[in-house]
Design a protein around this nucleic acid. Structure first.
Lengths: 204, 204
DNA sequence: ATATTTTTATGCGAAGCAGTACATAAATGA
DNA sequence: TCATTTATGTACTGCTTCGCATAAAAATAT
């Protein structure tokens, strides 16, 4: 069972690499304001090839949303596991999110804020499918926060006033609020100060 | 100086009423996914008349953003002034925001979430002008929260651990996070529970 | 009445859009 | 070698988009 190459002509591009490039375009311009011609030009993949590989414009966008969520999810889990002290882990989660939302280096015109929460809501009002993807991503964020909080409570590291569920929602809201402010141009420094103070306040 | 009618043919529509209708369309569909034909059809105003009255598509959109921010700002000030106990005032601010973000009655397909924070971010990545309007609105939210918190501190009603500035940012982030969740379909009940707990936690 | 001013209505035009048909190219299997 | 399979490139279709040019309509001013 060697990984023999598939039958026909091989692709000239890497699927995952292309998806990352497309994601960046949607991230900066939003879904509706991005054209397939633009994607085709920047990836140098012809539109028929895009179709054959990823499907319709909406299919591509949703694949990008899931691709981004998966990347963030893995990084978040890794950050939490890397610290023994839970509140340190949460702080690390927020700090690396800020690095993605508002990169310090290369302050060129790259995309800012969270890809999902900055572009999907605009479409979610009229598109049920995108609305559901958005809900799934938000629920996943809150759930991860909640589980982290629950673990910390079990280890007697913290004793929050609110339930773990509510505390998870509050941490999620804080992250979303920071993403929005990153998109609007708030400085990295202010984002980080607000994040640290917010975590401290919410876990108290 | 009687308010004599202007010289030419009078308009067949009310300017402010039209703006409210247009706002609702952008609110549901987002900026780029809304066409002027759609606006023309729903308002029954011909495109050239729209142009003469409000300017280009982006001009119209920005006028709607400012219209919405003005409306929310006035309601917020009124809510704060209506209560002597400040934390009660803040709770009222959040409760009436939730009523707008996720109306309990008429659960028809009306727009959900905050008009500004759900539609502007998508465009803000590539449009500097919209990005600046977004920043102004966010700053105004935080500033109002901060001033309210400062008034409460002065009256010795609360003694938050964080500075008034940070506390304002945290309350703003909470509001933005709730708006996003409203857009994704989270129930009114859960939004209200999270809001109340969040205010309590942030002011503690 | 007639001129002037402003809004409304029709419809044009150049560009952009998503999606696809069809022929060609490049790989494998036999 | 030759059929089969998959990807690529060109070019097209049918539709929508924004903005505007032009003429008619409805008001006031003289």
């Amino acid at each position: 069972m060697s990984p023999s190459r598939p039958r026909g002509r091989p692709r000239l591009f890497d699927k995952d690499e292309a998806l990352t490039t497309i994601q960046r375009i949607f991230w900066k311009n939003g879904y509706s304001a991005t054209s397939l011609d633009q994607i085709s030009a920047e990836t140098k993949i012809n539109r028929p090839s895009l179709y054959a590989t990823f499907g319709s414009k909406k299919d591509i966008y949703i694949k990008c949303l899931e691709h981004f969520a998966e990347m963030m999810g893995k990084r978040t889990e890794a950050a939490i596991l890397s610290e023994t002290e839970i509140s340190r882990g949460l702080e690390k989660v927020f700090m690396q999110a800020m690095e993605i939302y508002r990169p310090k280096a290369k302050s060129d015109g790259g995309p800012m804020g969270c890809f999902v929460t900055c572009t999907a809501p605009s479409e979610a009002g009229a598109d049920e499918e995108i609305k559901e993807v958005l809900k799934m991503v938000l629920d996943r964020i809150d759930q991860t926060m909640r589980e982290t909080v629950e673990a910390a409570i079990k280890d007697r590291k913290i004793q929050p006033k609110q339930t773990a569920e509510i505390t998870g929602h509050l941490l999620g809201c804080l992250l979303n609020g920071l993403s929005l402010r990153a998109r609007s141009g708030t400085s990295r420094d202010e984002l980080e100060r607000t994040a640290k103070a917010g975590i401290e306040q919410i876990l108290a």
